[in-house]
């Protein structure tokens, strides 16, 4: 019946989308990098599956590049950087996690509404695939906008690029897929390198660690004085007494 291969490709696309949401949901830089690595792996799988399904061996190359670069090398490099620079580990959000998740769902709905009319005539699942890829792209962009932390922004950019590659490998008969994905990868690598250089210079230019301290989420002395509104969960420590502390144990 030949439905299963399409289903699996579709499911892989869905997994990419889900991982984009995971990226948005994470609060810790480490977890963001892990999720990104998994997304790279899923992208590699998707490309390999498409190569198998469409019978286009070049796509195996894309899959290989994706796997080596995005699932292994870049995450490793990012993690090493994180260790060396001792960047603060919490993701700083410009928009709350809940709000950005809601915005994410809205963006996906928009992607669906945009893709469906312009691809009229294609198979239902192919259209959904395209909608998924566009959603991944948009979510990557959303992540770049809603995170203050540079590493998360870079990860957002790369996740955006993942979405592009997903769309490219999914469209049967698209020329120059391998070249395109390689070029995009090179671009991303440049950005990452640039970011590192920038970060290191920042790092040595500024010696004001107090500025850094104020960004740490877990300030010991300040938390329990915090007042309600924004990050007021901690404010209830006063009311909850000893169990506020116990709860986090």
């Amino acid at each position: 019946m030949g439905k299963l291969p399409y289903d699996i490709a579709h499911l892989l696309g869905g997994a990419m989308l889900l991982l984009s949401f995971v990226l948005l949901y994470q609060r810790r830089v480490q977890a963001v990098i892990n999720a990104f690595a998994v997304q790279g792996g899923v992208l590699a799988l998707a490309a390999a599956w498409q190569a198998n399904m469409q019978g286009v061996p070049e796509l195996y190359l894309t899959a290989l590049i994706a796997f080596v670069a995005k699932a292994v090398l870049i995450p490793l490099a990012l993690r090493a950087m994180l260790r060396r620079l001792d960047l603060h580990r919490a993701v700083e959000t410009a928009l709350g996690i809940g709000t950005s998740m809601m915005a994410g769902v809205a963006v996906v709905a928009l992607a669906i509404l945009v893709v469906l009319p312009i691809t009229a005539g294609a198979r239902a699942i192919a259209r959904e695939d395209l909608a998924l890829a566009l959603s991944v792209v948009l979510l990557g962009m959303l992540m770049m906008i809603t995170r203050r932390n540079a590493i998360s922004q870079v990860v957002g950019l790369m996740s955006l690029e993942n979405g592009l590659v997903l769309a490219a490998v999914g469209a049967a008969g698209m020329p120059l897929v391998v070249e395109l994905s390689t070029a995009a990868l090179v671009l991303v690598v440049f950005v990452v390198a640039g970011f590192f250089v920038f970060q290191i210079r920042e790092r040595f230019d500024s010696v004001d660690t107090a500025a850094l301290e104020s960004h740490r989420g877990e300030g010991a002395g300040d938390g329990w004085r915090g007042e309600g509104a924004g990050d007021g969960w901690r404010g209830d420590a006063g009311q909850d007494g000893q169990r506020g502390g116990a709860g986090q144990a």
């Binding site: 889900l18 949401f21 949901y25 996690i97 809940g98 998740m101 809601m102 994410g104 769902v105 996906v108 709905a109 669906i112 469906l116 239902a124 259209r127 959904e128 909608a131 969960w233 709860g247 986090q248």
Partner: peptide
């Protein structure tokens, strides 16, 4: 932490809504 739970369940709600939206499309 207790007050992360709404985020956790809220994410579940959003995923469920997304699932429904994809189904509307198909």
């Amino acid at each position: 932490r207790v007050f992360r739970v709404p985020e956790f369940l809220g994410a579940a709600l959003l995923l469920a809504l997304l699932a429904a939206a994809l189904l509307f499309v198909s």
